[in-house]
Amino acid sequence: MKDSLNNMKYIEKNKLVELIKELKKDYILIAPVKLKNFVLFRELKENEEPYLDFLNSRNSPKEFFFPQTENIVEFEGIIDKRVSKLEDIKNKKRIILGMRPCDIKSILILDKLFINEDYVDNYYKRLRDNTLIFGFGCNKPRTTCFCTSFESGPFFKEGSDGFITAIGDKFIIEGITEGGKKLIEKLENADKDMVKAKGEIEKNANDTVPSSVKVEKIPEKLREMFEHPIWEEISERCLGCGVCTYLCPTCHCFDIQDEVINERGRRVKNWDSCMFPIFTLHGSGHQPREFRYQRMRQRIMHKFNYYEENFGVIACCGCGRCITQCPVNIDVREIISSIKNVKLTISNEK
């Protein structure tokens, strides 16, 4: 208990800027920034201040581990020696400040894919190893938040190196890993009242999440539903754009493309989306997923069945971005509940 108290620090909200200035000397600092009327995570520029009074960011911070565009090879002319971009990945350590627990959960989900015993994605791993995450408790979950449905919650701390809780005009910062603790060791210790107040907030936090979906048995049920007519129903209003997949913190499909300009070239990993027809189009013209319903099915199946089958966890963290930003308001919570309501007949059970 004593030890854990020592790891509880605090800082006045208006002092945060100074702390950041200090940290910037040794670290690249990634934090939420206000832009127009939304909030984006990005690398703080010179004199840029973070904006921490936000519900959640428009983009998902996954892009700092799995960038939308990332060089994997650079070359000039034709190469005959090994080329690698790995040495060039900035070795400067990074801090992501203010990441919401749902987004941190998504990184834990992605770890299973990018770092497993079959193959390790070195680019992802390098960024992962070089980054300290300071989670940020959610005092005001949105109506579209349903993180508690996925063994997570507004004060879920797994995956954080440190964890920030906003109380009044202070941030209570808890050191979790050695790296996290070390970073805040110069801050003042939080007193008992603060720790108590923090405990109060955390205690009832899960009840503040307004929305939930029941995912028990969904993976098993989906296995029997591949041929079900529900997919055509669900996908009818889908426009086939990539908003849901690109804003999703757990979507991880990518494309590999080469680009050459004046004899200089690079090979890049780019995000790709299963909602685009070209995603699975064969060179021969053969198209295994020709229709919108097949692509929608792939997205839902991948998250709620395939991923669970391969890695033991559902690839959704309940952040609600796909719901709020879909141009035609396709709501994944609704999809899950309609899957739940499907009564399987014998003909669906192969």
Partner: peptide
């Protein structure tokens, strides 16, 4: 510069 190439503009 903020474009993420989700092509929602095109598809909508």
């Amino acid at each position: 510069s903020r474009c993420i190439r989700c092509y929602a503009c095109r598809n909508a």
